[in-house]
Amino acid sequence: MRGNAGRENAFSRLHPAVLMTFFLSELLLTVFLPHPVLQAEALVGGLLFCLLLWGGEFLRELGFYLPLFVLVALTNPLFSHNGVTPLFFLNGNPVTWEALLYGIFLAVSVTGVLFWCKAYSRVMTSDKFLYLFGKVAPRLSLVLSVALRFLPAYLAQSKRVERAQKGVGLYAGESFTDRIKNRLRVFVAMVSWSTENAMEVSASMKGRGYGKKGRTNFSLFKFTSADGVFLALILSLTALTLCGAAAGMKNFAFYPRVSRVELSPVSFAACLSFGLQSLLPALWEGKERILWKYYVSKI
């Protein structure tokens, strides 16, 4: 997942605050509005966006999500015997239609959230996260950002140490226990090296004046008009969905009997606006790609 971080997409170029608003709204709405239509919309939107982000690579990954989907969908009817329409009996317990539907509903919801989390990991890279976080909690975000900077260096160093040890003939054995012992030994060496290194880095920070009062936060992120448009869109769609949900949507129940999907205008509006919101990233990405093709054709 991290390996792809270099290839930036159009959606990722939006301002971090806008992106964060979008993901928070999308995830919270998905999670707190247990309505099958909304869940399905979230799933489809997430799926499309992930496809645009990863392309064929993601199709292969679906091989992991599909079994998960089936597993979640099927375990519910096996454990839960609520509902009034038994399909068949297993060990004397009824497996009901309602429980099966509820299982599928759960599966849709779970995979939908997973897709959005996956997209989040790709789009909200650590620097964006830290940019937002840095204003609220400067000390914590410093610890986090330095740790993130250390990590690749530590990985490289631990590899170097491992090879150096092998090169002088230590832990060169190939057996399983040898390899574990080797890793452990290298890990201990890394503790020693990293703490030493940390002292050097903190000297460099002090040398450049860290610790004075009134520190500012610099970033390359600029809030453009496109960000404004997008933010306005998200906020109005979220508001619409919330209003619709509050005014019209009844609690959708699976037990004892599955409720019907209402077709009142208010709930229809809510479904429409949430559907649009869920498709927004994919649409935005698509629009930018078409624009890009157009610009490229002029070069």
Binding site: R139, L144, A147, R183, S194, V201, S202
Partner: peptide
Amino acid sequence: TFERGEGAPARLILLSSLTALSVLGRIVF
């Protein structure tokens, strides 16, 4: 509490380093 507390840069960086270290452990294994 951490955000409000006082601490030398050395302590902050040490925390970063230890955090990175334990993540390293998770990745290496």
